[in-house]
Design a protein around this nucleic acid. Structure first.
Lengths: 196, 196, 196, 196
DNA sequence: CATGAATGAGACTTCATTCAT
DNA sequence: CATGAATGAAGTCTCATTCAT
């Protein structure tokens, strides 16, 4: 009576998404062929299109997944002390900012230029991120831990400039090792927000 | 006779480069068709390839040109008071950071992932930029205008994080108006470098 | 499940090769469009390149096939009486030397001038042919059926001059009917080898 | 009053023809670009088309020139003792049969397959050659020097098989050195014609 | 005469997607 | 579900030829 299929189906989708993520990070959206994804996922092309209706849909699903994870992250951070949460956020960033993730982030930004649907998802993700950061900034300001000197939204925006810039740097400059820069990043954030 | 006229030849190349820059900024490298560039430059495809041997070569020439302009900029800035130069640099950035330039910058970073030759040019440009900023930071520190608290190279690297992040923001977030943020950026830079 | 069917794959390749052979014989390598081959094979261009990676590869496969057939032929001839085998060889040549085959042979020789890979295959085929003929000449000499007066390799080489020349004649001179010349060819061969 | 132009014009044409001959021999008709011929002739493309109306016309002129030289050769040979003339003819062949000439001959034959105008010229040249050889064979037979055993036209045809085959061999087999084979060729001819 | 910029048709090949098995 | 053969539109680039200077 119970069909096991839905679970298997979902597993297959995740498998494809994981494979595609690696491919897109390595070669970008345009340069990745569906055949590459098939090979990476160990699957025929006919089967791939059984699970996703197009290459764009795969990319969109990855961006969507990214948004879901951002949501989850801020749900968690919102329960913490605001300054500790901000520190934890940038710490996590350093941990995430390996070559693959950074290059993928770059690809996502670039692809948003060309594909309206991707642009919408990216904008939504971006709003989530800024809203989450703004909330933390507001609470930290109220708690007297920081004195950004500008409204919370503006401060959050400038924090995202650091986020974007960090990923860009990792993607572009192979000599830049984010983990070695962890302390400096903390200091930069502290200075920008005038933390006490 | 001797009707070669290298000036005309150079003018044509610049015309193509300008047209291609617009196209690449609008649609990215991969989505830009050589036919698009031809149309934008008002030129047949055969003639386009008379001046550049491939689409990649056109893109590479644009990146190269960008490096040349960066060189020229820092040559000029190096004659100025270091703090004034830093302020002028970020001011110029704000002026440059329109949609087209920002999107092109994104495309260049993304393309560097896929094309070794582009990656080399981008790395070279990046080195120029960081070296230029490091020199300014060093002189400003010596003059007592700033107290970065880290060595000049590290400080310069974090300034490039701001640069990259700024362009990314412009490209990704249509509600972000760099000219309105000019003052905030000055403040962020001042804080990061602990300017007096 | 396991629906791969290598036999069908091989059949398709042969179908393409047969179609391409007709095209190349008719118009030469350079003048044959891949679209011509597709049309002749009743197949889309996309599918054609599913079986061969380039037009050159198709041509190379034809030349390779020719070598395999030469091998098989001499494997058979080597079991026969040497003089009977030589006679049979030139008889077979006359049967093969129709317009299509002769023109294809010409195209293959010409293409070997331009494509290193083709040149290697042609050289290999040529060596097979000369070695096969030399073996027959040697055995026929030992059996006292012929007195070439030169060593077997030289004699074999001059027999290939006749082979090449015959094909060339068919290709170039529409009034030359090889089947009508069968007897003369036998006589020429007999005289060149001084058959008893 | 006297215009020097016609001579100069003719010299230019010869210069182009010589350059084109080298190019066609090296790369074949299809693979030779007009730009190659221009470079080899030290001339702009505009100028090239001032002297020949098309690439085909250049090739045709080369083939035509070949025919003129064949005519001249047989005009000379016809004044000699017929057997001496036949010997001289094949001797000359050996001298001519270097790589360039042989490959060009191959290209001419191949191109005749595709271009009706070339085919006509080749056929005409071929007729000249066979007629010239047939006349020599006839005279040599009448003089009792040879006993071909077939009519003069047939004998001439088989001599052209040797001619074509020889060129083919030179073009295809780099180890075949025609000058080393001079004596063997004489013997082959003598045997085919049953010379006394 | 000479130059080389300009044209544009068309070639080969790629690749996302569909479909028969 | 799974396979991989099949499709065909579209892209980059080539090259013989023309033309303005």
């Amino acid at each position: 009576m119970r069909t096991v299929d839905p679970a298997k189906h979902e597993a297959r989708r995740r498998q494809i998404l994981a494979a595609a993520t690696r491919c897109f990070a390595r070669k970008g959206f345009g340069q990745t062929r569906t055949a590459d994804i098939c090979a990476e996922a160990g699957m025929s092309s006919g089967n791939l299109f059984h699970y996703f209706e197009s290459k764009h849909a795969i990319f969109a699903a990855i961006v969507e997944q990214d948004g879901i994870e951002t949501d989850a992250l801020f749900a968690e951070l919102s329960t913490m002390d605001p300054w500790a949460a901000l520190t934890a956020f940038f710490d996590l960033l350093v941990d995430l900012a390996d070559d693959e993730y950074a290059k993928l982030a770059l690809e996502i930004s670039a692809e948003a230029n060309r594909d309206e649907r991707i642009a919408e998802l990216v904008t939504a993700n971006d709003r989530t991120l800024r809203a989450g950061l703004a909330a933390l900034v507001e609470r930290a300001t109220a708690a007297g831990r920081i004195e950004p000197g500008v409204d919370a939204d503006t401060a959050a925006t400038w924090l995202t400039v650091l986020v974007d810039g960090l990923f860009n740097r990792v993607a572009v400059d192979p000599s830049f090792a984010p983990k070695r820069e962890r302390e400096t990043l903390r200091q930069v954030v502290a200075r920008v927000l005038q933390a006490n």
